[in-house]
Amino acid sequence: MDLNKELEKLRKIRKEGANKVFSMYLNTDPSDPDQQGGEWKIHLKNGLKNFEQYMEEDGDKEELKNYQQVKQKVEKFVRGNEQNFKKGIVLFATADEEVWFADRVQMPLETEFYWEETPVLDQLSKLSERYPKAGIILVQQNEIKVIDAYLNEIEGTISYELDLDTEDWREKLGPRDGLGTTGKGSTNLQVDNFRDRFEENKHRWYKKIAPKLDKRAKENEWEKIYVVGEADQAKELKNLLNKPVDEVIQKNMLDHEESKIIKEIFG
């Protein structure tokens, strides 16, 4: 989903009379303390019912009919996705089906319902700005991992490892071999030798990988770039990228779970 394109379409929508636009932001986050008992079901039921009661009292039969058609579609979508909820649901709909946008999102939402002439996009616009297309570059000596993130979700990952024999970077497919650490199979002397070699060559080595990272940034249309790693390594790589880096995070997180990395950066 390209949220910016969807927002552009929705901003052009304007209805008149009885055929209004329904907008819904529904918090379904199971980790939210206020959602531990499935409170979203109550919020959804009450939110949908309130509009219906108002229209029944107002006596506008055509508007009520349109709203009830939308309500059925909303309930059907929610039921069909209940077993696969993320943090929330964003939905916009009209009875004539000119507007239908419904998606489960991994972004935190405040539950809101609207029935108006235009879609209410304030919350979605803010989320689009907060969770843009981003590249997260994790660096740890001779290894680099790249995470493509968008709307607080992981869209793809790729890892690179420096071949110390050829001094070329290659895509890494298997588990780590422990080189440069004091792990099993490595002696302290080997580690010391590697560290010395790394310090002597890191500028030249990172200069070789930088074009690959810039190319990925262009192809994936990164709006933000984050470099994560120990201070000297992260700053060295940042200075070699043509694309501007928005933030350097001085933490060694290459081996962390990707969801934890996303949370560290976007909160």
Rank of each mutant, 00 (worst) to 15 (best):
M1A: 12
M1T: 13
E6A: 03
L7I: 02
K15F: 03
K15P: 04
E16A: 08
N19F: 07
K20M: 10
F22C: 02
F22P: 01
M24F: 02
Y25D: 08
S31E: 15
Q35T: 00
W40N: 02
W40G: 03
K41Q: 13
N46I: 09
G47L: 10
N50P: 04
G59I: 12
G59H: 07
D60Y: 07
E62D: 15
Y67E: 04
Q68N: 14
K73Y: 10
E75V: 11
K76P: 09
F77G: 05
N81T: 11
N81M: 03
Q83K: 15
N84K: 15
F85P: 00
G88Q: 02
I89Q: 04
A93H: 01
T94K: 06
A95S: 15
R104A: 07
M107T: 09
E110I: 07
Y114T: 01
W115S: 06
E116T: 06
L121T: 04
Q123H: 06
L124Y: 05
L124P: 00
Y131T: 01
P132S: 07
G135M: 06
I137G: 03
Q140C: 11
Q141L: 08
E143K: 08
I144Q: 00
L151N: 08
N152H: 12
T157Y: 08
I158W: 04
I158R: 12
S159G: 05
L162R: 07
L162S: 05
L162P: 08
D168M: 10
E171H: 03
L173V: 12
G178C: 07
T181C: 04
K184E: 15
K184T: 12
G185V: 04
L189E: 15
Q190D: 12
Q190W: 10
F194N: 05
F194D: 10
A217W: 05
K218T: 08
W222F: 11
E223F: 02
I225H: 05
V228A: 01
Q233F: 14
E236L: 03
L237A: 06
K251V: 04
S259E: 13
